[in-house]
């Protein structure tokens, strides 16, 4: 553990480089995520927020750089060490990613059945407890296809916390929800964070909601961190880029176009048959 900085970061990313083809999704990025806080990772869609979660959870491998979660170097862990680390993480995928063949109850029970030898009655009470926490104890016997989007996400949330993780990652938890489900999820994220003593990371492009939720936030664009601070600090940030993102304006330094060659060159260019 790093003793010099006093309180060690829960997650620390140094000099991260990650490429897809010729495009650098992350270009020498540093991120420090403090323990016990709610940190928001923001940025327009396509910047690599989901990719960042993949890197932190060891499903993707960076070209270079160092990623540490709970002090462990994620990309040099052996498979069983990585799996041991993942037991300490909960991830809520964008669409929930429930196992479609299993009922809501069995989905939440899945990690328990795979990793523990708990008795059937123990599993029963644990699962119902977690489903109660997300307000869906009554939906235990429904299949994923019978759940609404918001409900599926809450069941997935119950599943993500059933092993009592230290870290929890949310990928776009607010998209595609009606206002009521939305405020339910916001409340849940906050209460779970408090009661379980989690380190929470939320990936989202929804500035308005994160404002009331996050202790700290990072703003990403084109492979770089363009701003960091509490949502309030970001609001006061005078950078045109930050103002554009927070204000949600189409015009500004954030490009509307995906990087490409000059338009006229592509239409007229003679080098396309080379």
């Amino acid at each position: 553990m790093n003793t010099e900085s006093g309180e060690a970061s829960a997650i620390s990313i140094r000099n991260l480089v990650f490429e897809r083809g010729d495009r650098a999704i992350f270009d020498h990025v540093d991120v420090e995520i403090p323990r016990g806080r709610i940190t928001a990772i923001m940025g327009p869609s396509g910047t690599g927020k989901t990719t960042l979660l993949g890197l932190v959870t060891g499903r993707l491998h960076p070209s270079s750089g160092d990623i540490r979660v709970g002090g462990l170097p994620v990309q040099s862990l052996r498979t069983h060490e990585l799996y041991a680390l993942r037991m300490r993480m909960g991830v809520l995928f964008q669409n929930g990613a429930l196992l479609t063949e299993l009922s809501a109850f069995e989905n939440v029970a899945f990690p328990l059945r795979e990793h523990t030898d708990l008795s059937e009655s123990m599993i029963h009470s644990l699962v119902l407890m977690k489903l109660q926490a997300v307000g869906l104890r009554g939906a235990a016997d429904l299949m994923p296809a019978e759940l609404s989007g918001g409900m599926a996400r809450r069941v997935a949330l119950a599943r993500a916390i059933v092993m009592d993780p230290e870290f929890i990652f949310y990928d776009e938890p607010f998209t595609g929800l009606d206002p009521i489900s939305m405020s339910a999820i916001v409340r849940l994220i906050r209460s779970l964070h408090k009661t379980l003593g989690l380190t929470t990371v939320i990936v989202s492009h929804d500035v308005d909601i994160l404002e009331h939720l996050a202790d700290d936030s990072y703003l990403f664009s084109e492979g770089k961190v363009v701003a960091r601070g509490t949502p309030d600090e970001l609001r006061k940030n005078r950078s045109r880029w930050v103002q554009q993102f927070i204000g949600g304006m189409a015009d500004g330094p954030v490009p509307f176009h995906y990087p490409s060659r000059e338009y006229d060159e592509e239409l007229l260019g003679e080098d396309q048959w080379r």
Partner: peptide, 12 residues
């Protein structure tokens, strides 16, 4: 539908 990724994340 990311079920396989979810499983990996559950250390399965």
């Amino acid at each position: 539908t990311e079920q396989l990724s979810a499983m990996e994340m559950m250390a399965v």
